[in-house]
Amino acid sequence: MTATHTPPTDALLSLRDVRVTFRTADGVITPVDGVSFDIARGETLALVGESGCGKSLTALTILRLIDAPGRIEAGSRILFEGRDVLTLPDKELRSIRGRQAAMIFQEPMTALNPVYSAGEQIAEVVRTHTKASRSEAWTRAVAMLGAVGISSPDIRAKQFPHQLSGGMRQRVMIAMALVLGPSLLIADEPTTALVVTIQAQLLDLLREAQQARGASMLLITHDLGVVAESAQRVAVMYAGQIVEEAPVTALFAAPQHPYTEGLMAAMPRAGSRRERLTTIPGTVPPPGAWPLACRFADRCAYAWSRCTIEAPPLHQLGHGRTSRCHLVEEPARRVAAQATAGAAS
C-alpha cells in the first residue's frame, strides 16, 4: 500500500490518503477515497479519468478549495513545499493560492470577471499578493500578456472578456496563473472548452512556460492524447481512487489496469480502419453506488468471482508503477481472456 509510505524528499507536492466526503440527503458519499500521489519539482503529472471520477475534486483539495457540504476528512495529508496545507491558517493558505500554486480553470468564458478588462484581472492577482502600485501591476500584466503569446498586449489588456476569443481568454487565464511565478500549476481540463487547433497551441504554451520557470504541473484531463504530449507521469483515476500510476511511456506501452486498457482502446487512432470507436461498456457509477469490492468489476472484461468479493489493493509493480487490480497476482487470466476474445472474433 502506498497510503502510508513517507513522501519522497524531492516531492514538491505530496498527497497521502486524501478523502473528501459530502453529506447528502441520501447519506455520506466519498467521491475522493484515499488518493495518494507525489509530484516532483519540474515534473508534470497527468490525472486522467472519466467525468465524475473525482479528479477535479482532488485538484481542489490541494488548495483547500472544497466548499461545504464537502469536507476533507481527517487523516488526509497534503504537503506542499514541506508545509501541511490542511492545517495552515487561512491567511497563509491565501498567500499560497495564486502565488506559489495557481489554478487554471476549464471554462475561460466564465472564469473571467466580465466587468474587468484582461489587464485588470491579471493586475488584480499581482495586487492581491504584492505591494505593487497600480501602474506597476498594470505593467507586469501587459508584459505577461505578451509572454503568453498575445499580440499587441497593450491594446488587448484594455479589452474586456467578451471582446476576446475563447483561446485568448484562456491565455489570459494562463497569464493570471503564471504572473507571480508559482512553483505548481494546477490545470483542470485547460483546453477542453477550446477548438482542437487552439488546444495544441495552448498545451505547447503551458509546457514551455512551465519548463522555462521550472514549475511543476498537475494536469487534469480525460484526453490521453494530451497526456502523451505533456506529461511525464500519469495517474489514472476511477470512482474516487487511483487505479494505476506509471511513467507516461510505460503506461502507453503496456497498460496494467483493465480500465486504462479500456481508455486506450477507446482512443481513436489515425489510420485505423475500424468504423466504430471502441467504448468501455457502462458509465462511472455515482459515488454511493460503487461496487464494494473492485469498483470497476461490473464494467471489466476480465472480471471473475474474486473481483466482486475482494477489493484489490494498489499493487506496487516497481519502476514507479502501481495497479489496483487482482490481475497483478493472477496474470494468467489476462492471457486466457485475450485468447478467448481473439478466438471469438
Binding site: 478549495l65 491565501r94 493560492r97 495564486g98 495557481a102 489554478m103 480553470f105 488584480e124 492581491t128
Partner: peptide, 8 residues
Amino acid sequence: HAAHALGA
C-alpha cells in the same frame, strides 16, 4: 471561485 483560488 477563480478569484478565491488565486488567493483573494
